[in-house]
Every structure is written in structure tokens, then in C-alpha cells.
Design a protein around this nucleic acid. Structure first.
Lengths: 186, 186
DNA sequence: TCGAAACGAAACCGATCGGTATCGATTGAG
DNA sequence: CTCAATCGATACCGATCGGTTTCGTTTCGA
């Protein structure tokens, strides 16, 4: 039982930051809602920013693990790519869905040199590197370009699902992705 | 010279909110940076939220006017659609670019029933209605679905340009759009 | 059993939050 | 000229911000 409170804090803070936003969530309310004292919080993290960075690290791990595990279950590369959009659709349908944590973080910390912004960008870079392997395996001629296009659809679907009236952004994205794959002879 | 300060305030507040975020910008600092006294600010707007809503109304008008005027210059419907992505590319290249104001607003006010969130959603809806006419004129069989797909690319390009390492998200989006148009026989 | 480390309760810090109150100066239309 | 509306300066309000300090309690391995 070394630092269990630290992990518990990061997990709980993730939920609250995701639900309410970063600036809107004060450390006092964080302490009240998690049941973890402010003293303990600031013993593990010297600043709020450090806590946020830890939260984003956890989210990056959780999200990429979840997404690519879902995709792997689909079988061959082409099916894996399309399965990404099916997974997104399930995510959007959950009542807790409130857009992408990293898009939100970058929105609240807009300067590119900000550590929180930079770490959010890193998440997107890792996603890209992971996806480009699958697109390559699917036999794409220009796998990098196709990957970038597919990720545009993914990001667009996320913000549209959060902001939109649209019935099924994940389905639209999947449909567009099928067209892109067909044009790439995949 | 009826209420010139009001308009000036909204214009200046737009810049600052866009640059720094909503929660991060206090009314005191807004007064200091605009040179308009807090007294006057609160005479025109009863709350910060009312000011933000006015800012978003202005932004909605400005952005849609700018974008669709740019598109009209391109000539026929198909060229107009592609011109949207060229316009985005120019926007991304400007040093003041910091993502989409409405995506940011929805990020900071995540609950759908929040007035700021709702008004941001309304902007996206107006964009959709305007674009679907052009896509229809281009001769699309399912203009609504095609419009939704094109807007996914647009939103994806915006967040990727803000968050990304990517060299040219607008170019990638345009390229994907060309594929979608070709598949729709346009 | 002892000591170090992890924890909590609570008070405290200066700064800033959104918003108000008071009062006097400026201005423009009748 | 007058009167009402617009504006600014300044001080103020209670609440909350991120962060610290103090001190007492719990826990667990050596």
C-alpha cells in the first residue's frame, strides 16, 4: 500500500476534469469530491498543472489501449480501420461522453508551448503512429496521407458528436472512410 | 454615438476570449485590456455569460460571412466546396489562429443545456444549412449525407491544425473531399 | 516496538473571481 | 440651456482561486 491515494486521485480527477473542465474545477472542490485532503494532493503533485499532466498521461494510455484493442478484435487490417469508427459510435452513445479530453485541454490551454497543450498534441501523434501501421498493413500506397485523412474524420466525428445535432457522426465518418479506402484500392 | 462602447467591447472581448479562453479571462482583466470600465461593461451586459453570448453571436456572423464569401468567389458549386478547404488553409496559416471559437466554447461549457454550449451548436447548424445548399446545387444525390461528411473533414482539419504536428491538414481535408466528390459523381 | 512515511482536518495566505455601489465628468438632443 | 443618458474611477462585496502551514492520527515494515 505504497501510494494508492495518488492513483485514486488521478483516476477521480480524470472523471471530474473531463466532466466539468480544467479551469472550472478548483482544487478545493476536487478535494471535497474525491474525499482526498488537499494536503495529500499537494504532497503528490506540486501544482495543479502537474496533476493535470498526470491525468492526461492516464487518459492517453486508457484511450489508446481501449481503441486499438477494439480494433484488433475486428480481424484483418481493413476491418480494423472501419472498426475504429464503430468503437467511436459506442463511445458517443454513452451518457458520459463529453468530447475528447485532449481537444478540451488544448482548448483551455491554447498556447502551443504550454505543457498541457504539448502533451495533448503528443497523444494525437501517438495515435497517428499506431494507426499508420495498420493502414500500411492494409496495403495503402500512401499510408501516411490516408492515415491523416482517416484521423481528420475521427476528430471531426468527435467534435460533431459533442457539439452537434447530427444523428450519427460515427456512421457518417465510417461511410466516408469506406469511400477513401475504396479510392485507395483497399 | 449611441452605444459605440458596447460594440467595441464585444469586438475586443472576442479577441481576448479567443486568444486566452473564457474561464481564464476575468472581467477585471477584460476591463484593463480594453480600456473600458467594469461599470460600463456591466451596464451593457448583466453577466459575463451574456457578454460571451454576444461575442459568439458576432463570431458566428463574421465567420460565416467570411467563409461563404470566399467560397462564392470560386465560381461553380464544385469549386466552391473545394474553396472552403483553401480558405481554411489560409486561416490556419495566420499566427492568430487558435482553433474554432465554438469548439473551444463547447469544451469549456460541456453540458449541452448550457446556453453557451447551445449557441455554439447553433453555429454549426447554420453552417450545415448553408453548405447543404451548395452541395445540392453541385448535383449530389444525397446532399445531406455528403454535407455531413465534408463538415467532418472541416472540423477535423480545424482541431488537427490547432493540436497537431501535421503540415497541412487543410490540404489533406481538401484531398479527401475530392475523393468524396468523385465518389458522388460530382 | 519503534520510527518513518502517508494521511486528514482545519486554519491560513494573498490574489483574483463575478458583480455592485457611489459619485462625478462628459456628452448630445430637445 | 437643460436634462438625461453614457461613461470612468474607485472602492467595495463575499466567494473562490492555487497553495501552504501546523499538528495530530494512522499504518506498516524493520
Amino acid at each position: 500500500m505504497r501510494p494508492p491515494k495518488r492513483d485514486e486521485l488521478v483516476r477521480e480527477a480524470l472523471k471530474i476534469f473531463y466532466r466539468e473542465g480544467f479551469h472550472a474545477t478548483g482544487m478545493d472542490r476536487l478535494a471535497a469530491e474525491t474525499g482526498i485532503s488537499k494536503t495529500t494532493m499537494f504532497r503528490h503533485f506540486r501544482t495543479k498543472e502537474e496533476l493535470i499532466l498526470a491525468v492526461l498521461r492516464l487518459r492517453d494510455e486508457d484511450f489508446r489501449n481501449w481503441l486499438f484493442r477494439r480494433m484488433e478484435e475486428a480481424g484483418p487490417p481493413r476491418a480494423q480501420i472501419l472498426a475504429m469508427f464503430d468503437a467511436l459510435g459506442e463511445w458517443f452513445a454513452s451518457p458520459e461522453f463529453r468530447s475528447c479530453m485532449f481537444i478540451k485541454a488544448a482548448s483551455e490551454y491554447p498556447e502551443p508551448q504550454n505543457p498541457i497543450h504539448a502533451q495533448s498534441a503528443e497523444h494525437k501523434r501517438l495515435l497517428y503512429r499506431q494507426l499508420v501501421k495498420i493502414v500500411s498493413a492494409a496495403g495503402a500506397t500512401d499510408a501516411e496521407q490516408l492515415t491523416r485523412m482517416l484521423l481528420l474524420l475521427k476528430e471531426g466525428a468527435i467534435v460533431t458528436a459533442h457539439l452537434g445535432h447530427e444523428a450519427d457522426p460515427a456512421g457518417d465518418a465510417r461511410c466516408a472512410a469506406e469511400t477513401l479506402l475504396a479510392a485507395a484500392e483497399i
